[in-house]
Design a protein around this nucleic acid. Structure first.
Lengths: 211, 211
DNA sequence: ACCTGAACACCGTTCAAGT
DNA sequence: ACCTGAACACCGTTCAAGT
């Protein structure tokens, strides 16, 4: 027999899980209505609690946003890894491209998350340790693939952090430009990602015996 | 004899320049207090007018934000061109690097502008023609340098828009990551820009006779 | 034509008060 | 310890009314 899970009745969050309920409510607001719709009061209402209650669990709105950004970072990491697993890359270059495609795909499917993550939460004096850790995890996934590629002789022997920063900047830039409709894409998402990443791979300078 | 310019007395904006006054007020709010501080009501107050007056000149808040973003785009273009002029580049590659440095420098000095430009104004159904034109001007500056580089044989012979998108993504991504403190820079701004742009130039893949 | 003042429905944040 | 309700200072937006 299955145990019946309590729906969100007024007393459902008195056991200390109001914090989690508020995060879930914020996630729902963000994904369904965008970053504008994400408010502390609306989250409280969705969790069935007064508008002042969240302050028992979050210092201010930014603290809730940071918690949501952390979830977003983890989802982003998962999206990259999922794409890399699905693509069954034969080498580090293909793996790197797959990670990039996963990143871009997550961005276009979840623009709200991207806006929350890179919208200023990291700018505060003391970004929560959870959030920083989630960011490190995302970066680590990229860095690993790059270290691997250097070891395999597939990538230029250079500072892996330098290569990671270039790759991250490229894919993140493309993602934000696309999300904000800064340009009109002429090709599909995958082609966009593979296109710029191959340019990063082979370089945009001429010379060195090219057709 | 110089003509005395009227200060912002209550009657100073009755001549049809309230629109401009509101933009200037918004610019001031943005640069001095950040994007959070930029509100229609505060701009109205700064212009010495009631909070409902702006609606005679802007459809809604987003319209004012779009007007401000347009100014920002033009300043960004000017910053790129100024850096390129100052650097006295000897070839297209140096010129491209200078444009990138100008972009990054403007971004870190005016994060508010970047946030306004790439914060959703372009996402609406009908972004104002002025704003789109300002964006085209910025892109045109980059594209010109790239077309030149291809013609000079300094850049890979490829679709200039493809090369421009890759360059723009790279520099824009680096800028937003830096603005949002997504990573801790180990070197100065110039080195950061030249570093990633040289990687984009020579490519991150191994092979083809490199040391 | 252009602006004002009141009004409405939202915000974030604080604080005394309740259980 | 945890939550509520009222309160305050802000928002964006609308609308009748003034000149």
């Amino acid at each position: 027999m299955k145990i019946r899970v309590r729906r969100k009745s007024p007393q459902a969050y008195q056991h200390g899980d109001l914090r989690e309920a508020l995060i879930q409510a914020g996630l729902k607001l963000l994904t369904e209505g965008g970053v504008e719709t994400l408010s502390l009061r609306a989250a409280a209402q969705l969790a069935g609690v007064s508008h002042a209650a969240p302050y028992r669990h979050f210092r201010d709105k930014n603290a809730l946003v940071a918690a949501i950004a952390e979830r977003g970072f983890r989802l982003l990491t998962a999206a990259m890894q999922a794409e890399a697993a699905l693509a069954k890359p034969r080498d580090s270059r293909e793996r790197l491209t797959a990670l990039g495609i996963g990143y871009l795909h997550f961005a276009t499917q979840n623009p709200g998350y991207l806006r929350v993550i890179f919208g200023g939460v990291l700018c505060g004096d003391d970004p929560p340790a959870d959030l920083r850790a989630a960011g490190e995890a995302a970066y680590g996934t990229l860095r690993e693939a790059i270290v691997d590629g250097i070891a395999q002789g597939e990538l230029r022997t250079a500072d892996p952090d330098q290569l990671a920063l270039a790759s991250w900047s490229m894919v993140h830039g493309l993602s934000t430009l696309l999300i904000n409709r800064a340009f009109e894409p002429q090709v599909a998402e995958r082609e966009l990602a593979t296109g710029v990443l191959h340019l990063l791979g082979d370089g945009i300078y001429a010379e060195r015996g090219r057709p």
